[in-house]
Every structure is written in structure tokens, then in C-alpha cells.
């Protein structure tokens, strides 16, 4: 292969048509309220671990909808339950995280 000093860059674009959302669907079957997330971000805003570990429940749910691997984020969760207290849609976020861990296992 000829070295030109540069190569094709990888596109950062998300392709919805190619996104594998089976994990998300599985999660929704266990935690149907996951679907009602509206991305308000209050879970991430209040998250104890988030600022230090990169955990964001909003991004976890969105990532699953886009077919991304969210395990690295999930590892940062301390299961304190603060997000459950603030979610305006009343999503049982703690249970959602536990269900997700179960799916990944």
C-alpha cells in the first residue's frame, strides 16, 4: 500500500439503518419505561459518579437506541439511586441499570 502521509478518515456519522438495537429492545422488554426517556439529562446532572467516571444514563439509553456499546459507561455506575429520584418520567432507572447489567452478563 502506498504511503501518502494521510489515509481515509473514519466517519463519525451514526447510521440508523445499520444500528443493531436488539439490546435496546431486550432492555425495553424488561424495563418498558426505558422507552419514555426524553433525554432531559436530569439523571446525568445529578449522577454522583458521572463527573468522574463518564457515566451518563441519558447517553446509555441513547447509545442503546443507536446500537452502541455502552458497557464502559455502565461500569461507572455506583447504583446509588439518585437518578431514580429526579427522573420526571418516573423511570425506575436503578432497575433499568440492573436489567442492563443482567443482559450484558
Amino acid at each position: 500500500m502506498t504511503d501518502f502521509g494521510f489515509t481515509l478518515s473514519r466517519s463519525s456519522a451514526l447510521d440508523l439503518s445499520k444500528a443493531d438495537t436488539r439490546l435496546y429492545e431486550k432492555l425495553c422488554s424488561l424495563s418498558p419505561d426505558a422507552r419514555t426517556c426524553m433525554g432531559c439529562g436530569s439523571c446525568s446532572a445529578t449522577c454522583t459518579a458521572g463527573p468522574y467516571s463518564g457515566m451518563s444514563l441519558r447517553k446509555v439509553i441513547l447509545g442503546l437506541q443507536r446500537g452502541q456499546d455502552v458497557r464502559p459507561m455502565l461500569k461507572g455506575c455506583m447504583l446509588c439511586g439518585k437518578c431514580t429520584m429526579v427522573c420526571p418520567r418516573g423511570i425506575n432507572t436503578r432497575q433499568l441499570i440492573l436489567n442492563l447489567c443482567r443482559i450484558y452478563d
Binding site: 502521509g5 489515509t7 481515509l8 478518515s9
Partner: peptide, 14 residues
């Protein structure tokens, strides 16, 4: 800028 050419060729590739 030679270092940026990957971006140029990627668009053509697309």
C-alpha cells in the same frame, strides 16, 4: 495542509 488530506479524500470516497 497535508495532514488534513484524509478528510478531503474521505469526502470523495463517500
Amino acid at each position: 495542509m497535508k495532514a488534513n488530506r484524509g478528510y478531503c479524500v474521505s469526502n470523495t470516497h463517500k
